[in-house]
């Protein structure tokens, strides 16, 4: 089982490799990823895609809130909880296709 520290390091590596503004920034895991301009709405989709694939979880729309995605540490806690099954309603394996009608 991955620890939160492992997950944090993995996310830092991913962000460093995929977000240009993070390449020359020392990431502690606690900085606000939006206020620093490292990620935006497109970046959110990218990070969600990464954690869904790497940790075999599915993030539902209701979980895409600042509490879970503003900092790397928050994302790591979210992934850790989801991996352990102790998650909010959204982070479970379920269909991502909703009716919009």
């Amino acid at each position: 089982m991955k620890t939160t520290e492992h997950i944090t390091q993995s996310i830092i590596t991913y962000i460093r490799e995929n977000f240009p503004r993070a390449r020359q920034t020392e990431l502690t895991g606690e900085e606000d990823l939006f206020e620093t301009g490292i990620i935006d709405s497109l970046g959110i989709l990218s990070i969600i895609g990464f954690i869904e694939e790497k940790y075999t979880i599915q993030v539902n729309d209701v979980d895409i809130v600042p509490e879970h995605f503003t900092t790397i540490a928050a994302i790591a806690r979210y992934v850790s909880n989801a991996s352990n099954g102790a998650v909010s309603d959204g982070a479970v394996l379920q269909s991502d296709t909703n009716s919009a009608g």
Partner: peptide, 19 residues
């Protein structure tokens, strides 16, 4: 919630799906 996007399609009979 943070900003993210969903794609919505509508078939010729008016049924919608989003993802």
């Amino acid at each position: 919630r943070l900003n993210f996007f969903r794609l919505v399609i509508e078939d010729p009979r008016g049924n919608q799906q989003s993802r």
